[in-house]
């Protein structure tokens, strides 16, 4: 299971989950198996640099990274539709660290 957390800081698992998806600066992409973090990496979100179509660019990034679940405080209309089309689950959560969010999510993963 690969989970992408939208964040504004490049601080690994201690980054705070952003209130927004498409224009978040980074994605902390976590490989999570059997209740454990197997590894993670931080990727820049190309959506944050887009003048328009940020949500779509962010989703494309997650598709390329083979992500299964996206976590952010909110998802715009385009991003939400694209995620659903691509079968990527979206979970609304923000203001807590990636670690804490994983803890809350672990039963669903």
């Amino acid at each position: 299971m690969r989970v992408a957390f939208a964040t504004e800081e490049n601080n690994g698992l201690d980054s705070v989950v952003s209130s927004r998806f498409g224009r978040a600066r980074y994605f902390v992409i976590v490989d999570y198996e059997g209740g454990e973090v197997k590894g993670y990496r931080v990727e820049a979100n190309p959506g944050s640099e887009a003048r328009s179509g940020a949500g779509i660019k962010a989703v494309q990034k997650l598709i390329n990274e083979r992500v299964n679940v996206a976590v952010a405080g909110s998802f715009g209309p385009n991003a939400m539709t694209a995620l659903e089309e691509m079968g990527i689950k979206h979970v609304e959560m923000s203001g807590i660290t990636v670690k804490e969010a994983l803890n809350r999510l672990k039963d669903q993963l």
């Binding site: 498409g22 224009r23 944050s48 003048r51 328009s52 940020a54």
Partner: peptide, 13 residues
């Protein structure tokens, strides 16, 4: 010049 969501995001940031 296009008014963009990115500019609004910069302001909010």
């Amino acid at each position: 010049r296009p008014n963009s969501g990115k500019l609004v995001t910069e302001e909010k940031t």
